[in-house]
Nucleic acid binder design. Structure first.
Length: 291
RNA sequence: CGCGGGGUAGAGCAGCGGUAGCUCGUGGGGCUCAUAAUCCCAAGGUCGUUGGUUCGAAUCCAACCCCCGCAA
């Protein structure tokens, strides 16, 4: 039985596509807002966001919006659609209050941490960097402040020593989808009592930059920290360093990435096990990644 | 025409004009109570493809195919 609830979905990256798909199976997705096309790939071709690509051929294809700015024009477009609810998942921009006010039931946001902990753009990475044993996923009713609105529902997720950003992200999404599908009807009918976040407990994390993954090969961090970086920053930006290796004419600096599962990748080459890497590059200073 | 790295034995690499080499793995053998330890021997490569230059090319030139990093 498909609900007649009209939803507009806000999201951009690949990992959020399953959320959109499941929403579409259970509700009326009447529009999607996602990031504008960007140059990507080695050829620098203009590429639509994964969410936009996933919208091709779908019922809401005509209402895929890719605004540069969340301005009155967008508000007008959204108003025309007459949505009942927004669902926001890794959209990438802060949505102003006047837009959040458009749907009659407001906007829900999914966030991959146990709020108010790790508000911001990199909750999974932050949990991995801190070596947390438990994290989780939260659904909140959005307000204009960053990840600040009252909590609608949450679910704890236990982390393992081998989780990396990619794997944990997949787990989070998998756990969040059923929670979201269950939460939406309960939220609409007012069955759920919203829980205001305790701002005094809030912590924040900012968007990951490429340099965050860098470490000095001559002064590399303790193995435990390195291991956390490797897992938190995989597959991007990865824990990486610059390493000078001998070449016929002088020394050359190459980027070397450390990947989960004891894998190493030097610029221009495929990932290999550290053990194999060392056979070809016996001078590489890191001899083990075992914690 | 965004920038750059690379394609050489099963794997990771060196060689960069004169009949292919290192580490590891593999096979056989020795030493051991024994061994992922150690020693000896062996197998295994049309050096990405196609042309060109040369007495001679993995090594130089051209084109093409494939892989990858930056960037976004």
């Amino acid at each position: 039985m498909k609900s007649q609830l009209k939803i507009v979905f806000f999201g951009t990256p690949q990992f959020v596509v399953p959320v959109l798909e499941k929403l579409a199976e259970n509700f009326q997705v009447v529009g999607v807002v996602t990031a504008p096309d960007q140059k990507a790939g080695r050829k620098q071709l203009l590429t639509p966001s994964p969410v936009k690509l996933a919208s091709q051929g779908q019922a809401w294809e005509a209402n895929v919006l890719t605004p540069q700015k969340l301005d009155p024009t967008l508000a007008e477009q959204l108003t025309k659609i007459h949505p009942d609810l927004f669902v926001v998942a890794a959209y990438g921009k802060i949505i102003p209050q006047n837009i959040l006010d458009i749907p009659k039931f407001g906007a829900l946001n999914i966030h991959y941490s146990l709020l108010p902990k790790y508000r911001g753009a990199s909750p999974i990475q932050e949990a991995l960097l801190n070596g947390d044993k438990v994290s989780g996923t939260s659904i909140i009713k959005m307000d204009a402040k960053l990840d600040h609105g009252p909590i609608v529902s949450t679910k704890e997720i236990r982390l393992s020593e081998s989780d990396n950003f990619e794997s944990l992200n997949t787990i989070m999404t998998k756990e969040t989808i059923p929670l979201l599908l269950k939460t939406i009807p309960d939220f609409m009918t007012g069955k759920i009592k919203l829980q205001v976040q305790d701002d005094t407990m809030a912590t924040y994390c900012s968007i990951i930059k490429k340099e965050d993954g860098f470490f000095d090969i001559n002064n590399s961090p303790p193995l435990e920290k390195l291991d956390r970086m490797i897992r938190a920053y995989y597959p991007w930006p990865t824990a990486w360093t610059k390493w000078p290796f001998d070449k016929a004419q002088g020394k050359n600096n190459k980027i070397v990435k450390l990947l989960p599962q004891n894998m190493v990748q030097i610029e221009g080459k495929k990932p290999v096990k550290l053990e194999e890497f060392l056979r070809g590059y016996p001078d590489f200073p890191i001899k083990t990644l075992a914690v």
